[in-house]
Structures are given as C-alpha cells and as structure tokens.
Amino acid sequence: MIFRRSGVLALIAGLSFAGVSASHAQSFGGIAQGAEQGALQSVTGSSGGTSGLLGSLGVPSLSSASSGNIAGLLGYCVQNDLVSNVSSAKSTLNTLTGKSDVTSDASYASGQQGLLQLADGNQLSLSSLKAAVRKKVCKAVTSKASSLL
C-alpha cells in the first residue's frame, strides 16, 4: 500500500512538472485516495458486504475464536479500558475464567496479549488496529463472551 501511494504521488508530481494545472492535480488526488482505499479493501476483504479479515464494520469475525481466546481478549479489553461497562465485563470475565476449559486453552494467553486467533491459523493483534476499531472489537468480544456464559 505504501508503494502504491508513493507511486501515485510520483505520478501527480510528474504531471505537475509537466504543466498540468493545480485543479487537475487535485483530481488525481481523488484517484490516489481511491487506489489507497482499494488496496485496503483487498487486504481486509471489506468491500460491499463481503467479509474478509475485517468485516464491513471493520470488526473481525469472532465466530471461530475459542472460548479461551474470547476470555483472554476480554481480559485485554478490560485491562486497556476498551469496554464501556467495566464492572459487567469483569463479572463476565470472572465467570468465564472460573471454567477450567477456558484458562487451560492455549489461546487464552494469546487473547490476554490482545491476539485474536483467526480460523486460518493466523493471529490479528488488536494493538495494530485503530483505537475506534479496537473499541468495536472489544464490544463484540464482550457480547460474544456474555453469550458463552
């Protein structure tokens, strides 16, 4: 994505030196923005209703995450103040971690580090996401964790 952006910027700069007016150069900025968004969509798989790594709302699917990973992620979310109702989230977390199969799950420790285990075996680090997306993910994690009780 960085290469595309710099390539498009080089194209704009080249056209500017070639005598293209500022208004035309600005319209190329829209092309650059569209190219950047297209590149992002190809990475995330989030174009018009299809779901990839990140769904259309920018939140990854939690359907394949184990209960241990969800509990670990909830702990991460609570610890990093990413939940709106801390007392409810802590209560849910305490109930989940009271189950032996949850804390013995290998992905529980990954979740505590903010790593979501994906269906394809890869991990998504919540810390790599923008703050607003992290909060959305934590909201979804809280909801998923509540459904596991």
Rank of each mutant, 00 (worst) to 15 (best):
Met1Pro: 08
Met1Arg: 11
Ile2His: 13
Phe3Ala: 13
Arg4His: 09
Arg5Asn: 11
Arg5Tyr: 05
Ser6Gln: 12
Gly7Val: 09
Val8Phe: 08
Val8His: 10
Val8Met: 12
Leu9Tyr: 09
Leu9Asp: 08
Leu9Ala: 13
Ala10Met: 10
Ala10Trp: 01
Leu11His: 09
Gly14Lys: 12
Leu15Gly: 10
Leu15Lys: 10
Phe17Ser: 12
Ala18Lys: 01
Gly19Ala: 08
Gly19Leu: 03
Ser21Cys: 06
Ser21Leu: 01
Ala22Arg: 14
Ala22Trp: 00
Ser23Phe: 01
Ala25Trp: 00
Phe28Ala: 11
Gly29Phe: 10
Gly29Cys: 13
Gly29Glu: 14
Gly30Leu: 13
Ala35Trp: 01
Ala35Phe: 03
Gln37Ser: 10
Gly38Ile: 06
Ser42His: 08
Ser42Gln: 14
Ser42Lys: 12
Val43Tyr: 11
Val43Met: 13
Thr44Leu: 15
Gly45Trp: 06
Gly45Ser: 08
Gly49Met: 05
Ser51Cys: 08
Ser51Asp: 07
Gly58Arg: 01
Val59Gly: 03
Ser63Met: 05
Ser63Lys: 13
Ser64Met: 04
Ser66Gln: 03
Ser66Val: 06
Ser67Gln: 14
Asn69Trp: 00
Ile70His: 00
Ile70Met: 01
Ile70Arg: 00
Ile70Val: 14
Ala71Arg: 02
Gly72Ile: 06
Gly75Cys: 11
Val78Ser: 04
Gln79Met: 08
Gln79Ala: 15
Gln79Gly: 11
Asn80Val: 07
Asn80Thr: 05
Asn85Lys: 11
Asn85Ile: 05
Val86Glu: 15
Ser87Asn: 12
Ser91Gly: 12
Asn94Ala: 15
Leu96Ala: 10
Gly98Ala: 05
Lys99Asn: 07
Asp101Pro: 02
Val102Gln: 02
Thr103Leu: 07
Asp105Ser: 04
Ser110Asp: 13
Gly111Glu: 06
Gln112Arg: 15
Gln112Pro: 00
Gly114Asp: 02
Gly114Lys: 10
Gly114His: 06
Leu115Val: 01
Asp120Thr: 06
Gly121Phe: 11
Gly121Lys: 09
Gly121Trp: 11
Asn122Trp: 00
Gln123Val: 12
Leu124Val: 08
Leu126Arg: 06
Ser127Thr: 14
Lys130His: 02
Ala131Ser: 13
Lys135His: 02
Lys139Leu: 13
Val141Lys: 04
Lys144Cys: 05
Ala145Arg: 03
Ser146Pro: 07
Ser146Lys: 15
Ser147Gln: 15
Leu148Tyr: 09
Leu149Gly: 11
